[in-house]
């Protein structure tokens, strides 16, 4: 089997287990919820088509749901995330286009680019998760506030993880 595919499968389970066993317990002040598994979805190859992408999102989401007893909430948010991803990528195309085979890593494309790529997607994802979880019973601005802080928290964690592993694979 192709080496990159094996690496992707390993990464899939690594993100899933890290989320389920470590980061689910790392909620800050009851308002910032760290979701790092979208990091896996963010750095999937550029040329991944929308439908297989959404199926991957569904698989990852259902995995996280199974561990967090949230029954489909993360799956719903991840599918939406993967549907929106190509649109955001299109909007952010550099003037000379993406180079073929470029990994969507902050180390390759710059932290500024990565921020404008990841932050909106993460915010939509987090907002969906937290809004469905609240089920209309919380005041909306409070959900919005939680989504805002959670997005920042997750973004910092995801970026750290990506930099750590980018250095690993270069050596």
């Amino acid at each position: 089997m192709n080496r990159t595919i094996v690496m992707q499968i390993v990464a899939f389970f690594a993100y899933l287990l890290a989320q389920a066993l470590v980061f689910n317990k790392a909620v800050l002040f009851g308002t910032a919820y760290p979701y790092i598994y979208p990091g896996f979805l963010l750095v999937l190859p550029i040329d991944l088509a929308t439908i297989p992408g959404m199926l991957l999102g569904l698989a990852m989401g259902l995995g996280v749901d199974a561990f967090s007893n949230t029954f489909g909430i993360h799956a719903a948010a991840s599918v939406a995330f993967m549907f929106l991803r190509p649109y955001v990528l299109n909007m952010l195309t550099p003037s000379r286009g993406y180079q073929e085979g470029t990994a969507l890593q902050p180390a390759n494309l710059g932290l500024g680019w990565f921020m404008s790529y990841a932050l909106p997607l993460l915010f939509v994802h987090h907002l969906l998760v937290l809004a469905i979880e609240a089920g209309g019973s919380e005041v909306f601005w409070f959900v919005l506030l939680k989504a805002f802080f959670s997005t920042l928290y997750s973004f910092v964690l995801i970026t750290l993880v990506l930099y750590l592993f980018a250095n690993r694979s270069k050596k």
Binding site: M54, L55, L58, G61, D65, F71, G72, I73, A75, A76, V79, A80, F83, I132
Partner: peptide, 12 residues
């Protein structure tokens, strides 16, 4: 997208 979201909604 609609089909998958409907599936998730069913689960929830």
């Amino acid at each position: 997208l609609l089909l998958l979201e409907a599936f998730c909604a069913l689960l929830i």
